[in-house]
């Protein structure tokens, strides 16, 4: 078969918005210290995960 024609696609506005909002949320969550709260949970055996209650 012959080679296909190639063409670049424009990025959708919705896609850009999602990525920008995602980055802003990450920044805000990081400043809130969210990573520290789940770190505390993640370094101990979680009784709910293992089915202890």
């Amino acid at each position: 078969m012959t080679n296909p024609v190639t063409e670049a696609k424009p990025v959708k506005l919705a896609t850009l918005l999602i990525i920008i909002v995602a980055l802003l949320l990450m920044f805000a969550g990081f400043r809130n210290g969210e990573h520290a709260s789940y770190f505390m949970k993640a370094i101990m055996v979680c009784s709910q995960c293992i089915g202890l209650g």
Binding site: A22, M26, G29, N32, E34
Partner: peptide, 17 residues
């Protein structure tokens, strides 16, 4: 305000986006 999982939601939105 400290209970909103912004970092995790943002991270998952970034990966999915």
């Amino acid at each position: 305000s400290t209970s909103l999982p912004m970092l995790t939601i943002g991270f998952l939105m970034l990966v999915g986006g």
